[in-house]
């Protein structure tokens, strides 16, 4: 078997470059590390999932279909994405042009004690996305690839998948805000104005 490449990038640096490039995109995070990564710079256009493991990609699909003029970017962990695996097929079949699905892939469940996930065992999410008709799917290992991908993630005009390989460094929770109703209401009010409470 071919020697597999290891992720060497730092997740917080990856997410910092995404935050810099986010523009007016609507962002959905998965539970755990990606939630805390985006919590380093809180924003009302971010919907943080603190639970519902496997929800992120499909929540992003519903949002993308509801807001076709806005770029919707889902950023989640490899474990979270594997739990919502069917979403690759459901999203690929629907193929919304304004959705980017991004996995911050440390190849482990870091939150629960750093057990390896299936991506560690050679399961290739880029290949899965391609098989599920994502017109653009790539695995990202380097800063140069990341810079190119960030502009495509936020500026793209088609359904896109990126598997961003990172190292296994853990960071503390960054975000105090965890009341789900508040996170939802704040997001909706910012997006919809007074219509949010119709």
């Amino acid at each position: 078997m071919m020697e597999r490449r290891q992720g060497t990038m730092d997740r917080r640096e990856v997410v910092a470059s995404m935050i810099k490039g986010r523009g007016d995109a609507l962002i959905v995070t998965g539970l755990g590390s990606t939630c805390y990564d985006f919590g380093t710079e809180d924003h009302p256009n971010t919907f943080y999932l603190w639970g519902g493991m496997g929800a992120a990609a499909m929540l992003g699909l519903g949002l993308a279909l509801a807001q076709p003029a806005r770029r919707v970017v889902v950023v989640t962990g490899d474990g979270e994405m594997l739990m919502g695996f069917g979403a690759f097929a459901t999203i690929g079949a629907k193929a919304p042009k304004n959705l980017s699905l991004v996995v911050i892939d440390n190849e482990h469940y870091s939150e629960t004690g750093m057990q390896p996930t299936h991506t560690r065992r050679g399961i290739d999410l880029e290949g899965v996305a391609k098989a599920c008709n994502f017109p653009s799917a790539e695995t990202v290992y380097t800063e140069a690839e990341l810079a190119k991908s960030v502009s495509e993630i936020f500026g793209g005009t088609e359904l896109l998948f990126r598997d961003i390989k990172v190292n296994t460094k853990r960071y503390p929770m960054s975000l105090r805000l965890r009341d789900g109703a508040h996170i939802k209401n704040r997001f909706r009010e910012n997006l919809l104005g007074s219509k949010a409470f119709d």
Partner: peptide
């Protein structure tokens, strides 16, 4: 079916 629970939450976030 659980995909739909998440999807419709996203739809509502977007006003639908």
């Amino acid at each position: 079916e659980e995909e739909g629970v998440a999807m419709l939450a996203g739809g509502w976030l977007g006003g639908k």
